[in-house]
């Protein structure tokens, strides 16, 4: 059966407007995710899930769904680990905190968290954007990577913990470190960027040499990078309802760029 382009457009517009509300109370994650998948296959594009309580893998099971980059899911409650794992297109917005391994090996799409995130955020992330309003746990951004113009980005409003950006191979992470606090209270995190061989971490606040891995260099952001930072902070403000003019108050001199000294950190480790 063929559908005329006009009819399809009309159907899509209707689907885009309609918000599907789901109640996750007591739902098994597999059932919940399959329900979302089935509805998305029928054309639903906007979801609101209430009473989420530990259900894992939200946004993962959407392979093969047409136009999945148009799907947006608003999540109320506390989703379980691996939210957005391997996710490829959709937008997830969480009104609450998220657990571990959010955005695991994510390929494309956007995750917004109006709260804090647990450990291993964005592990092996390959594309898309993650905005965390609050703090993040340990081992965030491990082995993120990039390819040509596909550059994953994480913006953290609050503080970070140890092993941040370990083995990082590409992408960018911006840590605002308690936004708009003139003297950012950098929590003493250690082993930042250990084994790093690509990508950049931009941190607001001073980072001492003993906090970073041996493979990491500290420098000032370039003009181009500063423009990127401003762009992402503006996005952060828009997303979390902060006044945009605040961005102008950001002091460039407070930012440091952490990046790999070499694309080949272990090139000289071996005999012949």
């Amino acid at each position: 059966m063929s559908v005329s382009p006009a009819a399809k457009k009309k159907k899509d517009q209707a689907a885009n407007k309609k918000i599907i509300k789901l109640d996750a109370t007591g739902a098994y994650y597999k059932d919940l995710n399959r329900k979302i998948r089935a509805l998305a296959q029928e054309g639903a594009r906007k979801f609101e899930i209430n009473n989420v309580y530990g259900q894992r893998y939200l946004g993962t099971n959407l392979w093969g769904v047409e136009d999945r980059e148009k799907i947006s899911i608003r999540v109320y409650g506390t989703p379980g680990s691996d939210m957005g794992a391997f996710m490829d297109g959709p937008t997830l917005e969480v009104f609450g905190n998220v657990q571990d391994a959010t955005g695991n090996t994510m390929n494309c799409g956007r995750i917004i968290v109006h709260g804090s995130a647990g450990d291993v955020l964005g592990y092996g992330m390959r594309g898309g954007e993650i905005f965390i309003r609050g703090n993040v746990g340990y081992r965030v951004g491990i082995h993120m990577k990039e390819y040509k113009d596909k550059i994953p980005t994480i913006v953290v409003g609050g503080t970070m913990q140890d092993f941040f950006g370990e083995y990082m191979a590409g992408g960018r992470i911006i840590v605002l470190n308690k936004f708009f606090d003139d003297n950012p209270p950098l929590r003493l995190s250690y082993f930042i960027g250990t084994g790093m061989h690509g990508g950049s971490i931009f941190v607001r606040g001073d980072v001492e040499a003993h906090q970073i891995g041996a493979e990491v260099g500290i420098s000032e952001p370039t003009d181009k990078e500063w423009k990127e930072i401003e762009k992402y902070v503006a996005k952060y403000c828009t997303i979390f309802g902060l006044e945009k003019k605040q961005v102008k108050l950001l002091k460039r001199e407070k930012f440091w760029r952490l990046s790999a000294k070499s694309k080949r950190p272990y090139g000289t480790m071996y005999a012949y």
Partner: peptide
Amino acid sequence: IPQGSDAISPAPHHDIYSIEDLQMLIHA
């Protein structure tokens, strides 16, 4: 990954530190 860059596989999966974590990735 970019051309000419080392392709480094970390020793562990950093999202797997236990059987429970393995279970999480299997089901993911």
